[in-house]
Design a protein around this nucleic acid. Sequence first.
DNA 1: GCCGTTTTCGGCCCGACTGTTTTCAGTCG
Length: 578
Amino acid sequence: MPTAPAGTIENVDIARVFGAVADLLELDRANPFRVRAYRSAARTVETLNASCDTLVRTDPKALERYPGIGKDLAGKIAEIVQTGELALLRELTTKLPEGLVEIVRIPGLGPKRARQIFDSLGVGSVDELEQAARAGRLRTLPGLGVTTEGRILKAIADRRAAGTRVKLAEAEAYVLPLLEYLRQAPGAKAVDVAGSYRRRCETVGDVDVLVATARPAEVAGRFLSYPQVKDVLAGGDTKCSVVLRSGLQVDLRIVPEKSFGAALHYFTGSKAHNIAIRTLGVQRGLKINEYGVFRGARRVTGKTEVEVFKAVGLPWIPPELREHRGEIDAARDGRLPALVGLEQIRGDLQMHSTYTDGKNTVAEMAAACRARGYAYMAMTDHTKAVRVAGGLDRDGFLEQFAEIDRVQKTLPGIRILKGAEVDILTDGSLDLDDATLTELDVVVASVHANLTLGRTEMTQRIVRALQHPRVQILGHPTSRILGKRPGFAVDMEAVIRVAREEGVLLEINAHPNRLDLNDVHIAMARETGVKLVISTDSHRVDELASMRYGVDQARRGWCQPDDIANTRPWTALEKLLR
DNA sequence: GCCGTTTTCGGCCCGACTGTTTTCAGTCG
């Protein structure tokens, strides 16, 4: 049996295999609960705060302690870690074309229809599906008509035109005006957003808006006539679904006022969280749906979310935690974290000025930080290796130090820290001399170039940088750009371990295009005892407001104020920075 | 495939909308 080298299988790789198995099993008309088991295991593995690879090699039994992973799936995880593949997946892919999986992702088509189309027409890819629809062959199948054929063609075209998921900040720009518009609907008692948007996921697939009203038809009518609506996908009195001109899909749910809490809970999700809560309900003889909590035909409660949680014996759980990653157990045991909030942030430790690629001067950035109520801020311009940004050498920094001293005199009430975002060169050395590094208050070290290095080399590169005695913070630790490039390959478990040993803080980069670290790595760092900082990496004053997205991300990683170093006053933070 | 205060079998969350169906299956969230 071929054995993969240690530490090369990431949890996401295993999750991807399980997800593919689930997709194909579903197409193979397997037991739906077996399919669910693979999906659930994929999610569990992907969000595990420990590496499956390491567990398999050290304590394989431990895998079975995680929810949804039994003897069989633990064995399959071991198989993937040890051989780099899964025999079951290989069998399934020889049986069914991989293109079928893409067909299932087309809105309106599910596994049953996809399989029916494959079996009767031999259609096994999206391209073939499009040809069959154009030729009018789909309408010959039982249960499919001309309308469906047209919808499928449109869905294929839409998929090509629009991207898939939208960044949270972008979605906000479309959603806030829509909420304002709906609040003016006659009879709208409460208007709120649920779904992944409310859970503050870094990207959202669509937006779920909830309205409480006694006049559903009028609210639905107003929604469907929103000027930004491009297409209406569904239009009932309790559910409407539209696509805005921006391409963003918005689902509207309309409920009576007394059901608002139950509906808000249900539509906030996540799906896995909801299933777990409803299962708790079933154990107590309760039925929970979007209209309330029921015992038999009698409605027990449901006006507020607090009541819904209380009905299953739990305190209210913040939306950011509702991913079925242990929040229900924590709630039951009174172990829910007191999550960090934006108001607790006392300073911003990464930003740029006109000295490099920033658009505002040191004085402007400092004044804006003071206006935000911060006690301190770090000016962290680039070093010279980052040529596109016009990075500074020692002389450049000395010039900036003098400017900071001048600005500081005119701007009491905020401490302006002298910092740098030092480039980590390919060999892991730093792009600034030790003398200058020693004069800085805050040293952030980040990778900017040569992102395609192999996993082992990249890990060594970052570990070496962390071991430099002057490095205090690792900036945007994976250098991902949402929707554009994934983070580079790196053994994050090793990076976190070394950060812990060296006393280096990890940055949660709050820029809405980065949000780097992600929630899972944040949780991993926190559980390892590594402190984090939330920084905006602002290049202009208005970007300082991105801090809240970084706080959202930290909350999704279960961070309390103590986990976030920049909730501390400067004197306490200074002690934490080695 | 998982799970257990209904424990090793027999369950597994729940409802709305659509299209094509004369009563419901498929899809979605």
